[in-house]
Design a protein around this nucleic acid. Structure first.
Length: 103
DNA sequence: AGTCGAGCGCGCA
DNA sequence: TGCGCGCTCGACT
């Protein structure tokens, strides 16, 4: 069981309409390698099965997604999330605490 | 307050 | 073998 696979596994547990953070995942995996989690998601071999867009920074912001926070891909992810019942304003998730999924 | 640096695990050179 | 990454947190300005 690779570290990556553990990350994916946890990500897949995030229900629709909810989000989670690198920190929470790290906590769940009993590790502090938050960066590694980001790295794992970047390498994401299962883009659809593993909803990496549901994983955000601990502040509930989409900061540093896909390398550039101001990228076009980010907007798409944002819209996807919005369609799942989330509200995102200025790259920030509204009612983040409420939508946050803790394992 | 805002900035800085270190530490985590894995992938690629 | 060494560095960098979709990060976070504590320590210091």
């Amino acid at each position: 069981m690779n570290f990556n696979e553990k990350v994916y596994k946890e990500c897949k547990k995030i229900p629709k309409g909810k989000v989670s953070t690198y920190k929470e995942i790290g906590k769940k995996l009993n590790t502090r390698a938050y960066r590694a989690i980001g790295q794992a998601l970047k390498n994401n071999p299962y883009p659809i099965q593993v909803p990496c867009h549901r994983v955000v920074s601990s502040q509930g912001k989409l900061h540093g997604f896909k390398g550039k926070t101001k990228g076009k891909a980010l907007k798409e992810k944002q819209r996807m999330l919005e369609e799942e019942g989330l509200t995102i304003i200025n790259n920030k998730i509204q009612d983040f605490q409420d939508k946050l999924f803790t394992f």
